[in-house]
Write a protein that binds this DNA or RNA. Sequence first.
DNA 1: TCGGTAAGCTGACTGCATGACAGGACAAGT
DNA 2: ACTTGTCCTGTCATGCAGTCAGCTTACCGA
Lengths: 215, 215
Amino acid sequence: MTGQVRTVDGRVAGRRGQATRQKLLDCLGEMLSSSPYRDVKVIDVARKAGTSPATFYQYFPDVEGAVLEIAEEMAKEGAGLTALVSGRSWAGKAGWQTSEELVDGFLDFWRKHDAILRVVDLGAAEGDKRFNKIRLKILNSVTGSLTESVKELQSKGRIDKDISPAALAGSLVVLLASVASHQKGFQSWGVKQAELRPTLAQLVHLGVTGKKPTK
Amino acid sequence: MTGQVRTVDGRVAGRRGQATRQKLLDCLGEMLSSSPYRDVKVIDVARKAGTSPATFYQYFPDVEGAVLEIAEEMAKEGAGLTALVSGRSWAGKAGWQTSEELVDGFLDFWRKHDAILRVVDLGAAEGDKRFNKIRLKILNSVTGSLTESVKELQSKGRIDKDISPAALAGSLVVLLASVASHQKGFQSWGVKQAELRPTLAQLVHLGVTGKKPTK
DNA sequence: TCGGTAAGCTGACTGCATGACAGGACAAGT
DNA sequence: ACTTGTCCTGTCATGCAGTCAGCTTACCGA
């Protein structure tokens, strides 16, 4: 399934080559954290990795191509976020705990992949299908499970019939994603990190169950 | 207060100069809508405006500087979003209407300024204070009013005391903003445009009042 | 009407990044 | 030692960034 790693000109990469490739990806990742995406240059990445620009182009068509590579990697890890929702209960105290853990898991993941997620978000918003696919892969892992939960509760009459479960689940997930990526922005509103957690958990619980949580 | 428009080298811009400057801004705006931010070149903007790169640099230090200019302009318009919340009622049917109109107004604004908002969002997420300031200026116009509404309802005991009004208002506003900027992404979840509106309105109403809306 | 002055624009230049290529260095097997 | 295939880099053509001197245009007072 996962074919061998290949260079741009078709050769099969060996041990040494893979190491170089990975080093380039790592350095690119670091650069994305420290400088604006628009200013990241191939030459800088190469220098940081102790190699030459030509080497970079042996493994990636351009900066964007390498970013996609990092993003794919992250998306694999992101698939694990499903566990935050699937098989969890939304009733009573357990429901509140589900909410809290979902929020925590999400914020942690976003904090960890902060820089690369910014770029993925931009690419997706600009209409690039490859980036959108990656973004969806991550969000879907949560949205899918959440949609099921909403449908179930809706069938019990707890949520209005004219609400689309997918739209609701999607909105909540997007809410988490964007709060996560603008955590710093909240500080300007005098909102502390610690206040964000319960607020989001409350919103999620309200959205999914239509009820205030019992703690 | 608003000093005269000046060129980079300190000259005062006259009628013709202002027109050229504006044309450059317009063309940059168009380019941002049609191609990725990273690929927008000064030379292309200049060509599109029927002038030379050197002229561009007479009015702006670089692409980012010009983008900030467009963004400031947009932020002024965005200040008008306050009207969507301030002085509105959150009780009964009127509350539901407030919710709906807030969502509509927000989505419209975002759709209209789609391209530039993407860049502002990126800049803010990357930690650039100037972009963050602009982003906050827009969001604050709504968050401020919404925070007041939440505080008022909280004092009536309708919302838990341990919820920070600012955090709640901020989260809701950020929810609107991010759903707006990824409207296309929702289509992949099989969510139609028309379903988004009521879902968001419901979430906003739930968040602010803690109750399901009466329609 | 006629300079004088400041605004407005651009050609030309330097420097740097991109991206392609050919060929050298190196490791492994025979 | 020789061959083979991987791996890296020097070099080069191309194109954009950003600066400057100098030319053109518009305005204004005498």
